Amino acid sequence: NLRQWELNEREWTIAQQLCDVLRVFADATEFFSREGEEAPTLTDVIPSMDEIDEQLATDTTDTTLDPAIRVAVGCAKRTINHYYDKTDESAAYRIAMILNPRYKLQYFTEHGWLASWVSDA
């Protein structure tokens, strides 16, 4: 009587799509879990959040994904943006980016930040 609980083709597709969509979070978790010399720093937060946000934005409009997945991705995008907004509450993130020789203000301008945001930074 277990056949009634077997996943159908659509459910397997959704499960695979969900795994694919969640990969960006798995990658971020692995990245931020590194230790030693390769351990991430404060300057890695904003670029990582930008990467996650960009991937979620792409996934929300990907018509090859099941509608249920796109709705879930939209919810995830709103949630990640809620936490991304928290970086505005601390100047430490922007200061770290600007003082980092790899980034300075160039990161913000290259990634389409509004001029007022760059000025605030």
Rank of each mutant, 00 (worst) to 15 (best):
T13C: 10
E9I: 06
E35T: 15
E37H: 08
I98P: 04
T43C: 12
V21Y: 00
K104P: 06
Q106N: 09
W12G: 05
V45T: 08
L114M: 12
L65W: 00
G36L: 11
A91Q: 14
E89A: 13
T13E: 15
S119T: 13
E110T: 14
W117T: 12
T87D: 04
R23T: 10
V71A: 14
H111P: 00
G74W: 08
P47V: 01
D66M: 02
P101N: 07
D59A: 12
R94H: 10
R34C: 09
I95D: 13
P101V: 02
T29F: 12
T43N: 07
I69C: 07
Q17F: 06
C19F: 14
K77I: 00
A72E: 05
I69P: 03
S48D: 05
F31I: 04
A91D: 15
L18R: 14
A115S: 13
N81R: 15
A121Q: 09
D59K: 11
D85P: 04
K86E: 15
F32V: 04
Q16W: 05
S48F: 03
A92C: 12
V73S: 01
S90R: 10
V24D: 03
A92W: 06
H111Y: 06
R78W: 06
M97T: 01
G74A: 12
T29S: 14
Q55P: 04
G74I: 04
L105T: 05
D53F: 01
Q106A: 14
R70G: 02
C19W: 14
R94I: 02
L65H: 01
G36Y: 10
A39S: 11
P67G: 11
D53Y: 01
T61M: 10
S116D: 11
P40Y: 03
E54I: 01
L56N: 03
L22S: 07
E9W: 06
L56M: 07
Q16P: 00
I46G: 01
T63N: 08
I52A: 03
F25L: 02
V71P: 02
A68G: 12
E110R: 15
T29G: 08
H111Q: 06
R94C: 10
E89P: 00
F32R: 04
D120V: 02
R94E: 07
A26Y: 09
P67K: 08
Y107P: 00
R23H: 11
W113C: 05
A15K: 11
E11T: 04
T43V: 11
E35P: 02
D20V: 12
S119Y: 13
T29D: 10
R10V: 12
W113G: 00
D27M: 05
D88P: 00
G74F: 10
S33K: 08
P67W: 10
T60M: 13
I52P: 03
A57G: 15
A68C: 06
S48R: 06
V21A: 14
E38Y: 13
R23D: 13
R102C: 06
H111N: 15
M97K: 01
V45Q: 04
P101M: 05
I52H: 03
I52L: 09
F108G: 01
A72P: 04
